[in-house]
Simulated scan of single mutants.
Amino acid sequence: MPEPGGRPVLHREGALVDQQRTWSTAGYRPDTQFSVWQQIIADAFVPAEVARPDAGEGFAADCGACPVGDLHLLGLSSQRQTVERSPAHVAARRADQYFLNMPVAGRGRAEQGGRSVTGGPGDLVLVDGDLPFRLDFAGPFEQLCLVIPRPLLDPLLADPAAGTGVAIRGDTGPGALVGALLRSLAEHVDTLDARQVRGVTDHLLGLVAMAVVEASEPAVRGRAALLQRALDEAERSLGDPDLDATELARRLHISPSYLTKIFATTGTPFARWLWGRRLDRAWAELSPERGDDRTITEVAHACGFVDSAHFARAFRTRFGTTPSQWRTMGQ
Rank of each mutant, 00 (worst) to 15 (best):
R223V: 11
L126N: 04
I254M: 10
V125K: 01
D202E: 15
T191Y: 11
T22Y: 05
A302T: 03
P132N: 04
W273R: 00
A180S: 07
P256I: 05
P2F: 07
L243D: 00
G120I: 10
R107L: 12
V125T: 13
A138V: 06
V178E: 06
R29P: 10
C63Y: 05
P140L: 12
L73M: 07
A180Q: 14
D193K: 08
P53M: 09
D293C: 11
D280V: 05
V83D: 03
V189Q: 13
R223M: 05
G320H: 14
A224T: 13
P8R: 12
D43R: 01
R223N: 13
T82I: 04
S255T: 03
A284C: 09
D18L: 13
G199D: 15
L231Q: 00
L153I: 14
A158Y: 06
D232F: 07
G304T: 00
I168Q: 04
L16A: 14
L152R: 13
L286S: 10
Y98H: 06
L243G: 00
T295K: 05
R52S: 05
R250G: 12
F137A: 12
A284L: 09
D202I: 06
A95H: 00
G119P: 02
G75W: 05
S324Q: 14
R7S: 10
S216M: 08
A51L: 15
H310C: 08
L156Y: 05
D193C: 10
P47C: 07
A300G: 13
V117F: 06
D193M: 14
P53C: 10
V36F: 06
S184Q: 11
W275V: 09
L274W: 00
T297K: 10
E84V: 12
G239Q: 03
G320M: 12
L157Q: 05
T322L: 12
H11C: 00
P30A: 09
T268E: 14
W275Y: 13
R229E: 14
G27W: 05
Q19S: 15
T118H: 13
T266R: 10
G267C: 04
R183I: 14
V36L: 08
Q38G: 12
E84D: 12
A249E: 04
C63R: 02
R294V: 03
D18I: 09
A65W: 01
R250D: 12
T328W: 08
V90M: 02
D190T: 15
A282L: 02
S116G: 09
Q196E: 15
K261L: 15
E111Q: 15
L156S: 02
V208K: 02
A312L: 06
G239I: 00
R223Q: 14
Q20K: 07
G179T: 15
